[in-house]
Simulated assay, not measured.
Amino acid sequence: MLGVVSKQKNKVPAITLGYWVIKVLATTLGEVGGNAVTLTLGWGYLIGTVIFSTFLVAAVTAQIRSKRFQPFLYWAAITATTLAGTTLADLLDRSLGLGYLGGSLSLFTMVMTTLGLWYRSRGSISVDTVTGPKVEAFYWATIMFSQTLGTALGDWMADSTGLGYNGSALVIAGTLIIISLLYFTTKVSHTGLFWAAFILTRPLGATIANSLDKPTTAGGLAIGDFSASAVLAVIMTICILAIPQRPGQKSKSEPSRA
């Protein structure tokens, strides 16, 4: 049945410039935070994935059970996906031997499959329709796969294409600018452009993070992972408090199929 009016509130934030600023900070924090546990502490990708996956399940469960939009809870869940995505991507690419390209292609397939199932189930993949537990489940699954994809893609660009961390960040930033121009000047699907930008801000954050914590001989600034994580967490907290946070506009009629 189509055209069922949703009475539940949208619990994801409106997509504004401030949203993207906090999103990039969260993805950068996810990269250095993941590296702090797996590399600096030496606990490895498997243990890191278990730790952050536990945090992810708790945060997303709390988000889905919440009755209204809560900025800190939402961004805690986003940060959890970036932390788990970092360690999971490294586990797939390095420990399990898929390689950066193989991991990227596999994760891209997962993202597209999840979006396809979401669209088939609900008739839309717009964030404006994220107003119920089932849609939220699709939403967070898509985000988790896209965050993991972004990590693998960023590593592939930096290590396998010869661009390095800074070069990769410039290429991704340029692509995001093109997406922004398409959003404001063309009739290209805003929903499609949103998900493209969401995926690409993850490798942007990853390459920025690598520019911070990698050795100077590898093109980084050799800032410690824990120091970088602490600074990013403080900046992100300030931004959440300072940047107006409001729930996104709820669709008047959420397409659904009975």
Rank of each mutant, 00 (worst) to 15 (best):
G103R: 07
G103A: 13
S104N: 07
S104Y: 07
L105K: 13
L105S: 10
S106D: 11
S106C: 13
L107N: 09
L107V: 14
L107R: 07
F108N: 13
F108G: 15
F108V: 11
F108P: 07
F108C: 13
T109F: 15
M110C: 15
M110D: 10
V111E: 14
V111Q: 10
V111D: 10
V111M: 12
V111L: 13
M112K: 08
M112G: 09
M112D: 06
M112Q: 14
T113P: 06
T113N: 12
T114D: 10
T114C: 13
T114K: 00
T114A: 11
T114I: 01
T114V: 04
L115R: 07
L115V: 06
L115A: 02
L115P: 09
G116M: 11
G116R: 13
G116S: 14
G116C: 13
L117T: 02
L117V: 09
W118C: 01
W118Q: 01
W118I: 00
W118N: 08
R120F: 01
R120P: 07
S121V: 01
S121Y: 02
S121F: 10
S121G: 08
S121A: 11
R122D: 12
R122K: 10
R122W: 15
R122I: 05
R122M: 08
R122F: 15
G123L: 03
G123C: 01
G123R: 05
G123P: 06
S124E: 02
S124K: 00
I125F: 07
I125Y: 03
I125D: 00
S126T: 13
S126H: 05
S126L: 09
V127A: 07
V127C: 05
D128A: 06
T129E: 10
T129Y: 04
V130Q: 07
V130E: 10
V130W: 06
V130L: 02
V130R: 04
V130Y: 09
T131L: 07
T131C: 12
T131D: 14
T131N: 14
G132I: 04
P133A: 11
P133V: 03
P133Q: 01
P133R: 00
P133L: 08
P133H: 01
